[in-house]
Amino acid sequence: MYGLLGCDVTQIHGLGPYLTLKLVGECGTNLSAWPSAKHFTSWLCLSPSNKISGGKVLSSRTRRSNSRAAALLRLAAVAVGRTQTALGAFYRRLSARVGKAKAVTATARKIAVLFYNTLRHGMEYSDPGASCYQERCRRRVLTNLE
């Protein structure tokens, strides 16, 4: 993978060698077609499409897609939900609050952003762990309550 892409994408939890090869087959190795990670996730239909009329939000749902890349990222998100990583803790916290389907989409979007940043900008990913993520959320809640 390192010889093909120039960086190790498999450090991101949920992305193994097989899934990474399939994602590269769908998206390519050069992600310069998308100016930012937001454009990339929108192309994958993993970000909400806001329908606004007269300043009122009519709909804020993700679009349906037949994208194989989005389906692969959703599978990775489900697999990550069972791990003791920061992404797994994010999935579990969100699924308890908004439901499994929205949590899968949100985690898939987060994995897609990590994939984009790793390939496009050469970012190194290191997982802080589930306990660090939960402690950061706890601190954020306490500061908001104060």
Rank of each mutant, 00 (worst) to 15 (best):
C7D: 00
A33P: 10
Y91D: 04
L19I: 08
K22C: 15
N144C: 05
A79Q: 09
R74F: 06
S126Y: 07
G99R: 06
S47P: 07
S65Q: 12
A96Q: 05
I52Q: 09
T20F: 04
I111A: 08
D127I: 14
R92W: 06
T20G: 01
G14N: 08
W43R: 00
V141K: 11
Q134Y: 04
R68M: 15
T107L: 11
G28N: 05
K102V: 11
V78T: 03
R74I: 14
Y116C: 04
R93M: 11
M123S: 14
C45T: 03
G54R: 09
M123A: 08
V80F: 01
G25W: 07
G6W: 05
T143N: 15
R93V: 02
L5M: 11
G129W: 05
F90M: 05
L31F: 02
T85D: 01
P128L: 01
P48F: 08
V24G: 10
A71S: 12
G6M: 10
R138K: 11
V9P: 01
R82Y: 12
A76L: 07
L72D: 06
R109G: 13
G54Y: 10
I12K: 03
L44T: 02
T83D: 10
H39Q: 14
N66L: 09
R140S: 08
S95M: 07
T85S: 01
L44F: 00
A70F: 09
T105N: 15
V57I: 05
K56H: 07
V9R: 02
G25P: 06
I111N: 05
K22F: 11
K100W: 03
C7Y: 04
S42F: 01
M1L: 06
R109K: 15
S59M: 12
S36M: 05
S59G: 00
S67N: 04
S47A: 15
C7T: 14
V141A: 13
A77Q: 02
A71E: 02
N117Y: 02
N50Y: 00
G16P: 01
P35L: 13
H39L: 04
L145P: 12
I12G: 00
G122W: 07
L23D: 01
F115Q: 08
G55S: 08
T85L: 00
F40G: 03
L58F: 00
H121R: 07
R136A: 14
T83F: 05
R97I: 09
A33K: 09
N30T: 07
E26K: 08
R74T: 06
M123L: 06
T85K: 00
K38E: 15
A70Q: 09
Y18A: 14
G28E: 08
S32D: 13
G55Q: 13
Y133V: 03
A79T: 12
C137P: 06
A89W: 06
K110V: 03
E124F: 11
Q134V: 06
L5S: 02
E26A: 14
K56W: 06
I111Y: 13
G99M: 04
R120V: 13
T107D: 05
R82N: 08
V9H: 00
V113P: 08
L114E: 07
T20K: 05
R97S: 13
R136K: 11
Q84M: 03
